[in-house]
Design a protein around this nucleic acid. Structure first.
Length: 825
RNA sequence: GCCGGAGUGGCGGAAUUGGCAGACGCGCACGACUCAAAAUCGUGUUCCGUAAGGAAUGUGGGUUCGAUUCCCACCUUCGGCACCA
């Protein structure tokens, strides 16, 4: 038998058979441990790109490995089908988003099938189908009923020319213009729906019981951004009977506050600004609103701000201090107002110097000359003793945060007693804005009635479906609002005429629960079948890109916890283990994009090499969690590997067994050592070294064949184990070799993962490097059970060592058992 | 600016508790096969040096018998960011 390796024949054949046999169907089996493997679902852009392959095929290999280890594995796939691109295409060319999306999905399903993944397609979900979004709506209603959804005003980016709300990615350039027409973007305040993610801020900070990369945990922790401090109430002086609440992490520096800064968007601005300052304040406000977040965050930028004309009274010492507005104070964090203590805060210091505001030190570092506000060059934020602060003079301050700091806790307690303020905690995390002024999303199932206000659509009337016939002209409103009849409905409370919510939901809402719909995608009486939930959940392994660390992964955790508190889900976390893959860059080392022309098409690669080679190369060419640039020549190595494996395994049965006992022993050792290596690497998601270990074993098997090993029992074992080890990585060729070359019973993918025989894997002889003063001088090959004394004696007797000893007695001889000898002279 | 990764041959990478740096692969060179080419097979391939030998894991220090691995400082680069009060 000398047929060449022909993936084009092998792959479609097995794909069809696996499908026909339902080989990858995952059904509840109480007799087996379950494993729910999930990889982030794609947006149906129309073409599967190499990044999808990079995310999915190693995850598939891992899922297959788990299956061979006796787990009942669920590995589903679906489509995150709502979203902006389909709607943009509709505006541009009039193609209906549903038509376009369904076409794209048909195409991508085919591409996904070619990858040779073990997806159970019976469980597919598509988020834009009413069968799915009915339950997205239902979840919204549950959140609303449990007080976790509410409405408030919030600004959106808006293009006055296109008359439409813009996503962040549609706003371009430093001058923040519309991507379509170049018009400068303005901010518009709209009433929108929010979910109370902040209610779960503290719980989201705990990662107990989940195995997530530290990197993601740190990103989430920083995103939640918990900080402890105090709220302090400042009265506005003269006339305006207003109270300003500020948040500070440094209440111990209250006596050093020399001015106040409030955000330009703060509601008090209108109330307190004096007539003389009106013009300047309004100009500054407009300017701040035009600025991008990036501009606002630039620290090297000069501080800007405007005096409001108003003053505040510092409650602790009755000092009258000016109130400014400045863009470095954000309405979305804390209370949108701060007290400025320039002596001890870098930003306040820069601001004070620029606008010539007083600087009063209130923390004195010990053993140093007294700080002087007039001459200080930088703010001092370290430890010391409180000074210039009435009752607290002499109190120690360390450099710890919050309650850990004696100065902070002492002042905060005193503020509470006096009624000037209280201990407070603030988070960076904001509530989740879910309203989108768009058509192509899940409708928000709410009805507004003049008389009864907002009420949810009765659950028996779900889903609220998107109307088919809509106009795509950008009007500044959701196309749903412009539809002649869609929004008209009846109030569920009074039965009178009422209006539907015409905004739709953020697509992150769809992806917050899709893992539950896979459990029972066609279940019609609830979002999921409870029996399926009890068997499969939680997700055991979740894989996807790190870029989702803060948004999707945070939302889905929030969602799970909120549902848990309603009794819908169980356990504290939806996904037990998380692993992230890196990115495949173009050959030019840049991010792949159509405009750069560096996109690699997996379809063409499959055409040229077959899916198994593409899979193998993607697993081999880089550390999976790091990614690397694509190399069109590099893939030849993986193609060569499979051809060589094919050749060896198909050719090996005809030879006469001539090998010596030693050669046969060596085969077993190498095979079992490789198995050990491969098994460990699968556990750790280290796919690149799995492939290299198999390549290395193949090289050794070729040598063993030269030595007449083919046809021996050891050889047959090697062939069998080799194909089993290949199976998760390159499922097609492994199946062909298993069934049609080795003649084993179908299917290799239902075989148990082989067990390492430690005795076979054991080294009989070991080579020990001998160093003199840390430099390699000789090597010693000894029996693996040689004693330390024997090894030491042999090492000292070595001619190479003697040369370096020059007759001296070594000062010290370090023998690391079975590893190394170092002779110190 | 802050936070988090990463820096190892011409290239992608390996080194699993601090113990032989460069596994495996790409590329390249030479050789075999071939009329020739492709494919395939074999040999070699960190740098300097004819060699003995020496140097080398971003840079500079430190700990250690021994450091790619641990510590300190710095540089470069990639990613995240909402000046976080």
């Amino acid at each position: 038998m000398n047929k060449t390796y022909t993936p084009k024949e092998i792959e479609p054949k097995w794909q069809a058979k696996w499908e026909a046999d339902g080989l990858y169907h995952a059904d509840i089996d109480p007799n087996k441990p379950k494993h729910y493997a999930l990889t982030m679902l794609p947006y149906p852009s129309g073409d599967l790109h190499i990044g999808h392959w990079y995310a999915m095929t190693p995850s598939d290999a891992r899922a297959r490995y788990m299956r061979m280890n006796g787990y009942n594995v669920l590995f589903p796939m679906g489509f995150d089908a709502f979203g902006l691109p389909a709607e943009n295409a509709a505006i541009k060319s009039g193609i209906h988003p549903m038509a376009r999306t369904r076409d794209n999905i048909v195409r991508m399903r085919k591409q996904l099938r070619s990858m040779g993944t073990m997806f159970d397609w019976r469980r597919e979900m598509v988020s834009c189908e009413p069968e799915y979004y009915q339950w997205t709506e239902w979840f919204f209603i549950q959140l609303y009923k449990n007080g976790l959804a509410y409405r408030k005003k919030s600004p959106v980016d808006f293009c006055p020319n296109c008359n439409t709300t813009l996503a962040r990615e549609q706003v371009w350039g430093d001058d923040r213009h519309c991507e379509r027409c170049g018009t400068p973007v303005i901010k518009k305040d709209l009433e929108q729906w929010f979910f109370k993610t902040t209610k779960y801020a503290d719980e989201l900070l705990s990662y107990e019981g989940i195995d997530w990369p530290e990197r993601v945990r740190i990103l989430q922790t920083n995103w939640i951004g918990k900080s402890e401090g105090a709220e302090v109430y400042f009265h506005v002086a003269d006339g305006a009977a207003a109270l300003m609440t500020i948040f500070t992490t440094r209440p111990d520096t209250l006596w050093g506050a020399t001015f106040m800064v409030i955000s330009p968007e703060h509601p008090l601005v209108e109330k307190i600004t004096t007539p003389e300052q009106q013009a300047a304040v309004q100009t500054y406000k407009a300017q701040a609103a035009r600025q991008s977040d990036i501009e606002r965050e630039a620290t090297d930028k000069e501080k800007t701000g405007v005096f409001t004309g108003a003053y505040a009274i510092n409650p602790v010492n009755s000092a009258k201090i000016p109130i400014w507005i400045a863009d470095y104070v954000l309405m979305s964090y804390g209370t949108g107002a701060i007290m400025a203590v320039p002596a001890h805060d870098e930003r306040d210091f820069a601001f004070a110097r620029k606008f010539e505001l007083p600087i009063i030190p209130v923390i004195q570092p010990e053993g140093q000359p007294a700080l002087d506000g007039a001459t200080m060059e930088v703010a001092y934020s370290g430890s010391g003793k409180i000074v210039n602060s009435g009752p607290f003079n002499g109190t120690s301050v360390n450099d710890k945060k919050g309650k850990e700091n004696p100065g902070i806790i002492a002042v905060a307690r005193w503020l509470e007693e006096k009624g000037f303020g209280k201990l407070a905690v603030t988070y960076k995390l904001r509530d989740w804005l879910i309203s989108r002024q768009r058509y192509w999303g899940s409708p928000i199932p709410m009805i507004y009635c003049e008389k009864d206000g907002w009420n949810p659509v009765p659950e028996d009337q779900l889903p609220v479906t998107l109307p088919e016939n809509v106009a795509w002209k950008p009007t500044g409103e959701s196309p749903l609002k412009l539809h002649p009849t869609w929004k008209n409905t009846l109030c569920p409370v009074c039965g009178g005429a009422a209006t539907r919510e015409t905004d739709t939901m953020d697509t992150f809402m769809c992806s917050s629960w899709y893992h539950l719909r896979y459990l029972s995608p066609h279940f019609s009486t609830a979002p999921f079948d409870q029996r399926e939930y009890d068997y499969w959940m939680p997700v055991d392994t979740y894989t996807g890109g790190i870029e989702h660390a803060n948004m999707h992964l945070m939302y889905t955790r929030f969602f799970h916890k909120a549902l848990r508190d309603m009794g819908i889900t169980k356990g504290n976390e939806p996904m037990t283990q998380l692993r992230n893959q890196g990115m495949v860059l173009g050959e030019d080392n840049e991010k792949m994009s159509k405009s750069r022309g560096n996109v690699i098409s997996p379809d063409l690669l499959v055409e040229k090499y077959g899916a198994d080679t593409v899979r193998a190369y993607l697993m081999f060419f880089a550390r999976w969690d790091m990614g690397a640039p694509w190399d069109s020549q590099g893939i030849e190595g993986s193609a060569r590997w499979l051809r060589r494996a094919w050749t060896l395994i198909t050719d090996s049965t005809t030879n006469q067994p001539l090998a010596t006992a030693e050669v046969r022993r060596d085969i077993r050792r190498k095979v079992h050592q490789t198995l050990k290596h491969v098994t460990r690497d699968f556990e750790n998601f280290e796919f690149n070294t799995i492939v290299s270990a198999l390549m290395s074993l193949l090289n050794d098997l070729y040598k063993a064949r030269e030595a007449g090993a083919a046809g021996t029992p050891e050889w047959r074992e090697a062939m069998e184990l080799y194909v089993k080890m290949m199976a998760p990585l390159t499922p097609y060729v492994a199946e062909e070799l298993w069934v049609n070359v080795l003649g084993k019973p179908y299917s290799v993918h239902t075989q148990p993962w082989p067990v390492v025989e430690e005795e076979a894997a054991r080294d009989d002889e070991i080579t020990i490097p001998i160093q003199v003063n840390g430099k390699l001088r000789d090597r010693l090959t000894v029996s693996a059970d040689a004693s330390e004394a024997q090894i030491k004696a042999l090492a000292l007797a070595s001619a190479a060592v003697q040369k370096y000893l020059e007759g001296q007695t070594p000062k010290k001889v370090i023998v690391v058992q079975k590893k190394l000898i170092n002779i110190v002279v």
